[in-house]
Design a protein around this nucleic acid. Sequence first.
DNA 1: CTGCAATCTTGATATACATCAATGGCCGAA
DNA 2: TTCGGCCATTGATGTATATCAAGATTGCAG
Lengths: 225, 225
Amino acid sequence: MHRLYELAVERSYNTGDIILREEQSADYVFSIRRGYAAMVRLTSDGKRQILAFLFPGDFVGFTSEDNYHYGVSAIAPVNACRFGRAELEALVEKYPVMDRKLRFTLTRAMDASYELLFSLGRKDSLQKVASFIWYVSYRHKKLAQPSNPIHLPMRRSDIADFMGLTIETVSRAFTVLKGMDVIRLRGAYEVEIVDMDRLRSIGVVVAEPAPYERNDPDYYPHKAD
Amino acid sequence: MHRLYELAVERSYNTGDIILREEQSADYVFSIRRGYAAMVRLTSDGKRQILAFLFPGDFVGFTSEDNYHYGVSAIAPVNACRFGRAELEALVEKYPVMDRKLRFTLTRAMDASYELLFSLGRKDSLQKVASFIWYVSYRHKKLAQPSNPIHLPMRRSDIADFMGLTIETVSRAFTVLKGMDVIRLRGAYEVEIVDMDRLRSIGVVVAEPAPYERNDPDYYPHKAD
DNA sequence: CTGCAATCTTGATATACATCAATGGCCGAA
DNA sequence: TTCGGCCATTGATGTATATCAAGATTGCAG
């Protein structure tokens, strides 16, 4: 594993700096060491979608195409390690364990991506914002950072572009959550979660036990054949 | 590679059958051999989001959690191979090439997922439906299936639940595209793409060459802390 | 062929969110 | 400390899409 970091180049970025540019040849993979970044995609008419927020420990830059189909920029000062794709693949060839590690990393990114897909497609604005706050708290906890009075490393416009909303709608959702005594704000970036259970119940709207009315459940449970 | 299929169990499913159930223990991985399926997530209030359509050759069932966080059901008669996760991992351990193959498969799924994320967050209904038709045509082409007069294997409600719309809105978008002479319909499931370029230009709204005009050093004014 | 049921289309209305427009609060510079 | 600019918040209005409600096709069963 430390072999990996021998071929890394460490780099620093300030807030707003571009780490990786859309349509650039996909020659590098980055791992975020400190700070926060966002994977960004832009439309021809000036709209923006954030595909993922990157927290310390996250990797970015894997793609099946020749070029990146997204940009990455720092939303707070970032330290990142840059790996050449070719060198990385060579190393992986030598140490097959790496491959499993990378695969697991990708699988986690997939799960996060499906979670967001679900939010974007089928949650209303309040549910989106509630699940977003819950998500940031969760990620901070995983990193052993303060997870209750949390610091949001991103601005309202970033939240909006992540959740498919506008800044105004995000702001109003914060106001509603405050009014419900679910959260409290100390400045726009410090969120105290007063009622974690209620926050979760607003934002995490997955279905209960038996979700598939339509179908004949002949096949479940799949016995070993 | 054929070693892989030695530990597969082949199974058939009819339209509407459940291949894999949400919250089930994630013990299997499936590869679709024939037919079409959908990864589905449901909300507590009865809404549905399709996370991905599965075409022949696609894999499903990898997750970083202990349980699946989505269901999979057949939207047309399906033949699928089922692999035990444990056996698969054991095989991978023995033949490291497999790992790279799986990783690449996952990377492609990621790219597709980001594409959908973008559509859900920032496209209007016409753009969503146009890009959807384009996507199905593209997938058929990759499978060496007819890609111009295309057969849609899914119903309007599936398209709606994939694109975060309602069936009515999807239907209206089809009508608009017909009116623009971009597509022609022969029954609800047969789509002739009359003007592929226009279809693409409506649905694929990625930004042009220099996408980051706004992102001078000053774009995120919340400067270095 | 005929009839029925499912699903798609079309129309009318409601509504959540976007857009437009101030106002207000925080933070860094001087 | 005060000032000025950048964001966030709040308010008023507009609009795209959801919802509610009929019809119109399609395709299957008999």
